[in-house]
């Protein structure tokens, strides 16, 4: 292999005119983190609601929850990204559609919504599994004390279910973080997009993707450490 290694490329000015290649990658990292956190808020909230719906006594609620999960987890993320970015605005009333297309940072908002809804289906399944893992008697005991269905979930079932699913939920968070890279296809200048741009401008493909890889691993390690601390903080005395 005839490759011209150049690790100092990061400190050379980027073709954007301002800053170095390192700055370019770091701005990509910022967009990656912003997209991951924003979409996680949607995924966690909506996923919890949908997951709870699938465990409610109401058949209608179960059906809606199931339909949501099956719809959003059975279409490839890339296809969903295209649907939201290219197709959805066309289906809206013309004025609204073009207003959306002209939004500043449209790829960012689209990526947040798309990833949020996609990951919500996966979070919903974790939440449902967590609730179903609880002894049946827990729901009965809460009900027998006079708690309403909503109160039973709020004070008894969900606090225990979330504790159970914290490890797989951490995985979902990491997946969500890495899935932000798919948003490069709709023009979001996140970390992977920035690494590709660096490769195209400088031809230093190994340096560019080594940097991206290291940055992805670094933030994921931060997440894992945070999750471990969280697990420790919410651990219930007297259980494993």
């Amino acid at each position: 292999m005839n490759y011209n290694w150049n690790w100092s490329i990061f400190f050379e000015p980027s073709p954007e005119g301002v800053g170095t290649y390192a700055d370019m990658l770091l701005s990509g990292l910022v967009w990656t983190i912003a997209t991951a956190l924003s979409s996680w808020v949607i995924a966690f909230c909506l996923g919890s609601v949908v997951g709870v719906m699938r465990t409610l006594p109401s058949k209608a609620a179960q059906a809606i929850g199931t339909a949501y999960v099956e719809l959003f987890r059975n279409i490839p993320l890339l296809v969903q990204m295209f649907l939201w970015y290219f197709v959805a605005p066309e289906l809206l009333p013309e004025k609204l559609g073009s207003a959306i297309k002209q939004l500043p940072n449209a790829p960012f908002y689209t990526a947040v919504v798309c990833l949020g809804l996609f990951t919500a289906a996966r979070v919903a399944e974790q939440v449902r599994a967590g609730i179903l893992a609880l002894p049946r008697g827990q729901r009965m005991a809460a009900t027998a004390l006079g708690l309403t269905v909503a109160q039973s979930y709020r004070y008894v079932l969900l606090p225990n279910a979330y504790r159970i699913i914290l490890p797989p939920l951490t995985s979902e968070f990491l997946n969500n973080l890495k899935n932000t890279s798919v948003a490069l296809t709709i023009g979001l200048l996140e970390l992977t997009a920035r690494a590709r741009a660096m490769q195209e401008f400088s031809f230093q493909v190994f340096e560019a993707f080594t940097a991206a890889t290291v940055l992805y691993i670094a933030i994921n390690l931060v997440v894992i450490v945070a999750a471990t601390l969280l697990e420790r903080a919410v651990a219930v005395p007297g259980t494993r």
């Binding site: 002894p135 008697g137 827990q138 009965m140 005991a141 809460a142 027998a144 004390l145 004070y155 008894v156 606090p159 225990n160 504790r163 219930v236 007297g238 259980t239």
Partner: peptide
Amino acid sequence: MVFQHFELFPH
């Protein structure tokens, strides 16, 4: 109501 398996809320 008192249950066979106590059903205290563990958290």
